[in-house]
Simulated scan of single mutants.
Amino acid sequence: MILTKIIENKIKEIKNKYKKMDIKIIKYMCTRNYLREKLNEKKNLPNIIIENKKFSPLFGDLNFFKKKCKYFFIESFLIDEKFFKGKYNIKNKKKKLMKEFIIDKYQIYEGVFYFFNYFLIINFINKKFLKILHFFKKKYILENKDIKEIKKKKYKKNLGINNRNLKNFSISFKQINYFIKKKINIICESGIKNINYVIKLFNMRIKKFIIGTNINKKNFYEF
């Protein structure tokens, strides 16, 4: 039968064509092209949040390239004034994420007042804060590095995992392995040097990212 001959030939064809190629490389190339295609679409990459950061205690003054915002529909702002030169009153056409060391409910109210769409609460998680956000129908991300605390409080949604150690500023991706094994969706933060890091983590089932300092570098988008 002709169908049998076609299938037999196709098996030989595939073996000859792909025998020298590693499936990991093929998967990498497909993901790379998928992300590249998304970057060229109008909707772009909704799972990447770009961080508009003008200053960092680690790197000093930063040149934020506004033109790169066309690739993203959410822009993150670190509000802390003393250490990051941030502010609440930001005029922005895109959806805004307020990233702040929130220790008091008044900070939440101020963020709502200034029309922030999303809130990232760093380290200090309080149920009262979440009630306020729920009341105003605001979306939020809970950033916490302490896996023991996450297990204890059973947080499984809206988790932001910062790969940077805030004590010595080193970067490690080891802690995200726990969430990958448990199939818990997280937002990956810090240490994403270029688009290839996004591809690698994307293939590890991490779909959401907040990218700050490195996105200002010219070679970030080089595949």
Rank of each mutant, 00 (worst) to 15 (best):
I11F: 05
I14Q: 03
K19S: 14
K27N: 14
R36Y: 15
L39V: 06
E41I: 02
K42D: 12
K43S: 04
N47M: 10
K53I: 03
K54D: 02
L58M: 14
L58S: 15
K66C: 03
C69G: 00
K70S: 08
K70H: 06
Y71K: 03
S76D: 11
F77V: 02
D80K: 04
E81L: 04
G86P: 05
K87D: 10
K91I: 03
N92D: 13
K94T: 09
L97Q: 00
E100I: 00
I102Q: 03
I103M: 03
K105P: 01
Y106D: 15
G111D: 14
F115V: 01
F116I: 01
F119Q: 11
F119G: 02
L120S: 05
I121W: 09
I122S: 10
F124C: 11
F124A: 05
K127W: 00
K128V: 13
K139E: 14
K139T: 11
I141A: 00
L142R: 01
E143A: 07
K151L: 11
K152E: 13
K152F: 10
Y155C: 08
I161W: 12
L166Y: 01
K167M: 02
S172Q: 08
F173Q: 08
Y178G: 07
F179P: 13
I184N: 05
E189S: 08
S190R: 03
K200A: 07
L201V: 07
L201I: 05
L201Y: 09
N203G: 03
I211S: 00
N219V: 01
F223R: 01
